[in-house]
Design a protein around this nucleic acid. Sequence first.
DNA 1: AAAAAAC
Length: 535
Amino acid sequence: MGDVLATEASVEEAEPLPGFDTLGLGEELLRGIAEAGYVTPTPIQAQAIPIVLMGRDVLGVAQTGTGKTASFVLPMMDILSGSRAKARMPRSLILEPTRELALQVAENFVKYGKHLKLNHALLIGGESMDEQKAILNQGVDVLIATPGRLLDLFDRGRILLADCKILVIDEADRMLDMGFIPDVERIVSMLPPLRQTLFFSATMAPEIRKLADAFLQNPKEIKVSRAASVATTITTGVLMVQPHDKREALRQLVRREQVKNALIFCNRKRDVDVLFKSLKKHGFSVGSLHGDMEQSARFATLNKFKADELQLLVCSDVAARGIDIGGLSHVFNFDVPFHAEDYVHRIGRTGRAGREGHAYTLCTPDDMKLLGAVEKLTGKPIPRMTLEGLDSVDPDTLAEAAERPSRGGRGRRDERGRDNNRGRGAGRREDERPRAEERPRGEDRARDEERGSHEERGRGRRDSEAPRHERQEAPREYRGRDDRPYRRDDRRDRDDLGPPVRGFGDSVPAFMLIPIPRPRRHDDAAEASTEAEAA
DNA sequence: AAAAAAC
């Protein structure tokens, strides 16, 4: 470490930290870093950059907010800055699980690389392929891609990965969650075996460890704990509400809190849309983001939100991990996430860089189990909060709900919480759901329609239906909702049938239902292959 | 249960 730097730093700080110039990066790059306003590397940058420059593989355990992106982007740029790429033969590849993350990495690349003559291609779905093809033809130093589009372009012969000697697999745990691993394995198999691989994951579950072993050679393991831990900088709270009060409760929370900017997470895309419209109608400055939206809209909304032109962003878990939005004051969980880890990722969007953050969760009686899982994972109960003017949820109801065995889907329980509350007084147990005659007819119908087929899937056939053999033979005709013909999933309890046939809706051709014979034994298979050779 | 990712 340079004496000059240490002396300068000690004037200002008690503990002098080494600057970026001590890590072995080239001059042009250092200029870019300085102009971007960065002076001191974060722990993961300080550890990883020299290792990557040495050409070693890295196994990084780190989350977003730790400066992870720069820890691989910077040394990669330094390594690549020596030479130029050939047409269609990119020299490095960064894989990201979502398009937003890919874009974010690309932005980093541009930001630091001002004084370098490197180019990159952002290969993501939802955007025109022509432009991406044109860039590939010019020769690309860094590919930043989501797996789907990369494979698509590869299969069309637009990319050769034989010269791709640096590979980054980012957010590996998320790739695993999302089922991308087969794609990633295929992509890795197209790269030269002699390469440098950098592998990042927020967690080191056994499956992730196995993947790392498969992709990496003698990696240097680098672990960095979260900059902002849940315990210290994020104020959390959970508000018990009835489902019909959720939107009102959220509005009250947002109004009550000093919300500078906030992400609001929903479990379902559909609910993102609904909540977005509702908040907009109530005059909030709000945008929405989920994976079914047009790509241009996704990026535009995110940029607006980052630029503080929108106060609230209602989103699905597409935004739960990785997306780096500085200085979020709040995170609201409109729904308790299905997976407890997602809670940690969601609320990790706030309270970053030592700033104070707030994370509030709405929880209905049906969500108690999920909330329990969250509290078990974080090892801390989330403080209960109350709001004026809302039906408070009785603790007994909650305790009962927590003990209740999990039911398929949203369950039978009346979704209108008021009725639920009334029912509790009469000591209604969960399996004694309100009888049909207690409910207004039209409503019953609407609910049935809304629940749709996933309900039946979970519960098997309904009491009102004809015995199974009759249904099987019934002519297929539309008989209306209340007396509907059998559906595909009704047959699932027949043990000679395999999994339901996909893609035919309710009218599966009969031949599709013929059971598939048991797989051949080994020697049979050998015979079959010799037959095939003879033919 | 749901979300993400290719056309």
